[in-house]
Design a protein around this nucleic acid. Structure first.
Length: 130
RNA sequence: UCAGCAGGCCACCUUAUCGCUUUGUGCUGAAACAAGUUCAGGACAGGGAGGAAAGUCCGGACACCAUAGUGCAGCAUAGCGGGUAACGCCCGUCCCCCGGGUACUCGGGGAGGACCAGUGCAACAGAAAGCAAGUACAGUUCGGCUGUAGUGAAAUCAGGUAAACUCUAUGCGGUGCAACGCCAUGUAAACCCAUGUCCCGACAGCUAUCGGGAGAGAGCGGCACGUUCGAUGUGGGAGGGUAGGCGGUUAGAGGUGGUUGGUAACAACUAUCCGAGAUAAAUGAUAAGGAGGUUCUGAACCAAGUUCAGAAUUCACAGAAUCCGGCUUAUGGCCUGCUUUUAUU
């Protein structure tokens, strides 16, 4: 039984890492989510740092952006065990929300699972080829 | 019953599971023997968005720049009096306007100082509303001098207008918690260029030091004064680094009740209660049940409608970022009072 936690240490906060993520990171899109990922050097005992982002352009109200970010964090929290024990290197993640409508958790959960599975495949492939 | 106005209140609730943040308590492990401290982990208990948190439009607190100084410029305010830390806010009152009502009140609104300091502007009508003209008739001391008529609110006589310049009075220094202080990292008082100290005294002399004077230059939002710093200074340039932690940071011009003063805003005293502190930014997610609102259907009652039952829908505006007092804007519902409309007896 995995523990579904998402603590401070696992949140992506460093501005430098985020900049690097946006300029050098690879991405997987599975509508309405987009995952940008990059191998990163993180503090000890931390495998992955993840952040979420909702563009202000699509959602003008802070209340709606907050709500979507909370749902995204929840979806990540409940599904991160899919990748957590199967990665050797540490990664930085950033999830972007692409749609114009507010989502519900079930749909988001499904998308998140697909996204993480695809990520595992992708990283495996990269390792073998590289 | 319908609509309007004024005032007040609420801002879904409960349970379960999984989470986030913060405070406290004790536990386990690690770091040196003890006290204690630090780090990590998990346990238990408590706290965890708003009436507008919003717009950032005013006013303060606080911090730094000089204890924020004088004049000009600039900006703001505008009857009178009071409240307040302060205000452009609030209360009272006078005047004016509008609406009811009616002979005295009620409700609403008002950027309500000054146009006998100067400048400007003025629809229609009119010859003419200030730099250029002057119609008709009458009277004349024969001067286009006087009166009348005509237009208009107002005609060489003044008047209107200051959300027109302006004047008067009063107030206002600037930048904002990304303020500011400390620690860590960093060759970091680094590198390159430009420019920049003299005089007198204290010792017999040089350096250094001390006291006094001058001083290029620089800071103080603009200008002038003034003032402060001032040679281990000042200004500029290129490149590079950091962009992390702690403090500030949440208890306050706080809420509620009572007493007293006051027409009131409010104040004083007293009792009691409460207390978000995140930082790519916590305060949530899911499920079930319930309350309320809305819509639809059915039934009962004399009616507009009300009540009851069932179904559908979880649904207003909206997210703290240093903190307060206001204003403005957005918005769901409930209650009270007044006025109006309609219906029934």
């Amino acid at each position: 039984m995995p523990r579904f936690t998402f603590k401070k240490e696992e949140k992506l906060k460093s501005k430098r890492l985020i900049d690097a993520l946006f300029s050098e990171g690879n991405s997987i899109t599975r509508f309405p989510l987009k995952l940008i990922y990059l191998p990163a050097k993180l503090p000890e005992d931390t495998l992955i740092q993840a952040g979420v982002s909702v563009p202000k352009r699509r959602f003008k109200l802070a209340v709606k952006r907050n709500r979507i970010k909370r749902l995204m964090r929840e979806a990540y929290r409940l599904n991160k065990h899919l990748v957590f024990n199967k990665m050797q290197t540490s990664y930085a993640f950033m999830f972007l929300y692409l749609a114009n409508e507010e989502p519900d958790l079930h749909q988001l959960n499904k998308t998140m699972q697909q996204l993480l599975h695809q990520l595992l495949k992708r990283t495996h492939h990269e390792k073998e080829s590289g």
